[in-house]
Amino acid sequence: MNTEELKQAIKNYIIQEFLPGENPDNVTDDLPLISSGILDSIATLKLVLFIEERFGITLEAHETDKENMDTLAQMVATIEAKQK
């Protein structure tokens, strides 16, 4: 799966689960998701479980912070680093 596909898969999941009815164009690569309050602790946990299952990686507790998971771009970078 290339970077774009990976990003699209996460984006789709976020829209479907947490932002139903939202215009996909509004979910940009650098939209802050945790610091803006879109992803709370429950949503973050759900997203982590999805990422782990879908991309076959294991995320650590300290990796679910605003440095690694706040934006789509950060999430993709974190997943790709894990996959290497």
Binding site: F18, E22, V27, I38, D40, I42, A43
Partner: peptide, 9 residues
Amino acid sequence: IKHGRSRSI
């Protein structure tokens, strides 16, 4: 968890 929470951008 069961019913979701209303969020929007």
